[in-house]
Design a protein around this nucleic acid. Structure first.
Lengths: 326, 326
DNA sequence: TTGAAAGCGGTACCAG
DNA sequence: CTGGTACCGCTTTCAA
């Protein structure tokens, strides 16, 4: 920068100002600075800038896994909302709470200006660190009643309850439920709770053999369906929630020649294009993943710029997309 | 840090050293520093550290889109290889070359210690910036003959050529080809070139009406297949490469009752679990996306730590996974 | 509108 | 093994 300043015949202060707000500098000065920048190939050093100004333009995002396109939706939403004024630092917790804590520490050390989390459960340390950091923090994976700072999303419990109730309303009584393992996964736990609540409301007794956990992936869903179909009496419907479990189950039914919903009705969650393209198309829960990210970005910006203390809890809801599989 | 040093009764220098390499400090000193850190809740400031040491622990990754799980695979590979010693900064180019350049500038300003790109084509400015930055840079989306620095991946052209040749070997002569739009997408362009090369080698004349471009997504593939099937004479096989086009095509065939491969053989690329679970399972090209990322991370580490000037071009190849759709 | 001086919170380097 | 002293490259603050 000193080089640029010398070449433009001004002080570094003027260059610094010109770069951040061209309107504070004379047109002629600005032009000389510009050409000096071109001539020297100057690339500003944001590290120095951040240190001096004590603020950064980096937003930290922590997701359980990078591989899963669900999280990618949200990340894209955040990126779109933040535009090019902020950079995204992304870490994955590996679906573990200590993993999340490690990432939080790294982000705090990097002095990110805001953090977006997917988990709604954290280690005690994580919560403390975040509270004391004094930066905006948004939890997105599950609507929590008492967020660290802000939370945007939907209630996994309500969503699962609604879908189960939907199946009950369609006169299914014996309904299988498959989720990802609930341990260390608050979303899965909440969904199971929603399923149980809906059954209780409908006065249907829970058959524990109908409640399964499955590893993620199409195969996981396929195998869970086979397990359910081997029971006697068979369930009339299966609600597979999490990842692509329901799609996996449907494809298995296709392979085995089981009629859907004739032999077994299938409902899923995390609706995406795949759900509408399989045969029969799958009834499923639609979650506003992208919108959650976008809004998280917008709220972050508001806090970062205007200091508007936005509402702390935003429920973006969910939607039941009815198709032919139920 | 000054606070920690005071509390531990040592200089800041000692704290700094203790944090980076505990073995350079007495056990007793280390203990006192540790408890001082706990007592004060000190969170190191990497911004200051990076500025002073003139090196950062941030690796920048630029992908066309965050939404696509293909790129997510590679990113996860990088993250796994780098471990917790480095942080990942991620930007998306929005599939545009200027978008990529913007991201590169931002990363360079952030003084990342290394960059991983998906694109193999860049703006002139991008290339210049990268060359002058003096940091390791890995291009991964397509094996280039003259990389900016290093390239890891596979040849899109060779892969498409191999699959087309595979179809020819199976006695298909009239072979449709569908890719994403080739403009601004070097991977798609290369694949088309590979298809054309294979036909030429087999002495099959190209029918331009068999060569299509499609928007991404299952619907894109479905519509492309319908277009191909409306031709007369119909093609005997269709090679859809890019995104999930082939899966979309197969699901459309399922819906329309077209027999695969009886009425039309279908081959795809970017094999994943879905390809093996549909009916019939899809023959497709498998690309080592995760491995590309992992190796990129490893090579970055080597350069960053040991200064081993690793080979600049690493071809990880591809594989044809034969299933029942061809 | 522009400039000079004093840090931001660490680390490099050298001395003890 | 530990400490002192310059900086890293920019921004803040205040003065011109």
């Amino acid at each position: 920068m000193a080089e640029v300043a010398a070449l433009a015949g001004v002080s570094t202060m003027t260059v610094s100002r010109a770069l951040r707000d061209p309107s504070t500098v004379t047109d002629g000065t600005m032009r000389r600075i510009r050409s000096a920048i071109d001539a020297t190939g100057y690339v500003p050093n944001r590290i120095a800038g951040s240190l001096a100004s004590r603020r950064s333009n980096i937003v930290g995002v922590i997701v359980p896994s990078l591989r899963n396109s669900l999280f990618a939706e949200t990340i894209q939403g955040i990126a779109d909302a933040l535009g090019s004024a902020y950079d995204l630092m992304i870490a994955n917790s590996g679906y573990s709470l200590p993993g999340e804590e490690t990432a939080i520490r790294a982000f705090l050390a990097q002095r990110v200006c805001g953090i977006v989390l997917h988990n709604a459960r954290h280690t005690r340390e994580s919560t403390d660190l975040l509270r004391e950091a004094g930066i905006p923090c948004i939890e997105t994976g599950n609507l929590v009643s008492r967020p660290i700072d802000m939370t945007i999303g939907f209630s996994n419990r309500e969503a699962a309850r609604a879908m189960t109730a939907h199946l009950v309303a369609r006169h299914y009584r014996r309904i299988g439920f498959v989720s990802l393992p609930v341990r260390e996964n608050d979303r899965a736990a909440e969904r199971r709770a929603g399923y149980l609540a809906a059954l209780a409301e409908a006065g249907i007794e829970v058959d524990p053999s109908l409640v399964l956990e499955s590893p993620p992936g199409l195969r996981g869903g396929a195998e869970a369906l086979v397990t359910l179909m081997a029971l006697s009496p068979r369930p009339e419907a299966a609600f597979l929630t999490g990842d692509v479990l329901a799609v996996g189950a449907l494809l298995e039914a296709n392979r085995r020649g089981w009629s859907v919903p004739g032999d077994i009705a299938i409902a899923g969650s995390d609706d995406n294009e795949l759900h509408s393209q399989v045969s029969p198309p799958l009834t499923s829960l639609r979650f506003p993943r992208y919108e959650i990210g976008r809004l998280a970005g917008v709220m972050l910006l508001e806090r970062l710029q205007g200091n508007t203390r936005a509402p702390a809890i935003v429920d973006l809801g969910f939607e039941i997309v009815e198709r032919a599989s139920v």
